[in-house]
């Protein structure tokens, strides 16, 4: 029954294809292709499968497979050649396959203090920056969500505008501001707060301020999206039931905005762990962030296996935050239905 049905649908899709606008093209394709192929394609391929396959295959090839390759190379040994690592699987004297798993890269990461301290430092910087973003971004998002509709769209635009310019140039702006002879030091000197310029560049402070500054929109936008949807009647009901504004905020607004807070924190924290540009331009030289370490291993030392191992460990550290983020993101996108 179902066999004859699919055969029938194959015949009908064939006539449909050849009678359409692209008819001659299909006619030609059916003529040159082996009959069994056309039969298979007509029965099993639908436009739907094709539409799914295009983005799926692209992402599988350029997003998923690369991780597998990184994973593979992280078990290889470095050598001076192109590519600069040993193959994992080798034909031993043309007879047998030998798999050479080399865990040395990973043990190396944990014996050399540089890597462990870089990981810990990166996580600390990312976490502190994410919290600062929340501290600054929440009041902003809250204030925006309570403005009049006209103001709201203007403010929203103003929040996004800087991110449309250039991340690199915005970080660069802070290089100028924080320099020893820069405006901040000049103002402080003129006011007599300090006697000689304080070093602001190449400090933790500089990294924090630049990360908070560049990632702030990523905190404000999800929070604003969340807060803007709250029904004002909820706060009125709370007030009606005797809650003061502060209580109403803590008991109603804050719990309801939990999803926005989590999304914002993760949107700042995860990419900040691997941040490269900001610490390169403004960060300390005695304590590197892990993104910089990875990049140095790769470009300066040309040690691809160790760079890969660094990336894999970083991914493992971030896998839980990334999965939490995905859950929130999917939930948010599918709730609209």
């Amino acid at each position: 029954m179902s066999g004859s049905r699919t055969r029938q649908s194959a015949v009908s899709s064939r006539t449909r294809l050849t009678s359409g606008r692209m008819g001659p093209l299909w006619e030609w394709l059916f003529r040159i292709a082996p009959a069994s192929w056309s039969e298979y394609v007509l029965q099993h391929w639908s436009g739907r499968a094709f539409v799914v396959a295009v983005p799926w295959l692209w992402l599988a090839l350029f997003f998923l497979v690369p991780f597998l390759i990184v994973f593979k190379i992280s078990f290889a040994e470095v050598r001076i050649a192109m590519p600069p690592y040993t193959p994992l699987i080798e034909w031993v004297s043309g007879q047998a396959l030998a798999v050479k798993l080399n865990l040395a890269n990973y043990t190396y990461l944990f014996t050399d203090d540089l890597y462990v301290s870089s990981y810990l430092y990166s996580i600390k910087v990312a976490a502190v920056s994410a919290l600062w973003c929340l501290a600054i971004g929440y009041p902003m998002a809250w204030a925006m969500a309570r403005s009049t509709p006209t103001w709201r769209s203007v403010l929203l635009l103003l929040v996004m505008l800087p991110s449309f310019t250039s991340f690199l140039l915005r970080v660069y702006a802070w290089v100028g501001l924080l320099k020893n002879n820069g405006p901040i030091n000049s103002v402080l000197l003129a006011l007599g707060v300090i006697d000689e310029p304080i070093a602001l560049v190449q400090t933790d402070f500089a990294v924090y301020i630049a990360i908070v500054y560049s990632y702030l929109p990523f905190m404000v936008l999800p929070l604003y999206n969340n807060l803007e949807k709250h029904d004002p009647a909820l706060l009125e009901a709370a007030a009606d039931l005797g809650a003061r504004p502060a209580t109403a905020f803590l008991r109603i607004t804050l719990p309801l905005s939990r999803d926005g807070i989590v999304a914002g924190l993760l949107l700042v924290f995860i990419p900040a762990v691997g941040e490269f540009v900001i610490p390169s331009l403004l960060g300390r030289t005695d304590q590197l962030m892990i993104g910089r370490v990875l990049s140095d291993e790769f470009f300066a030392n040309r040690d691809w296996p160790v760079a890969s191992a660094v990336a894999i460990v970083m991914l493992l550290l971030l896998v839980i935050p990334i999965m939490v983020f995905q859950r929130f993101q999917t939930r948010d996108l599918e709730r609209g239905r």
């Binding site: 799926w56 350029f62 997003f63 690369p66 990184v70 691997g274 993104g291 990875l294 990336a311």
Partner: peptide, 28 residues
């Protein structure tokens, strides 16, 4: 599920990881 994962993960993936993995893919 895989497609949905592959479209949200790049939103937060640290750039150094994406860069490194793509380069290694291209080399391979």
């Amino acid at each position: 599920t895989l497609l949905s994962g592959m479209t949200t993960a790049p939103l937060v993936m640290p750039e150094v990881i994406t860069g490194l993995s793509l380069l290694l893919l291209f080399v391979t």
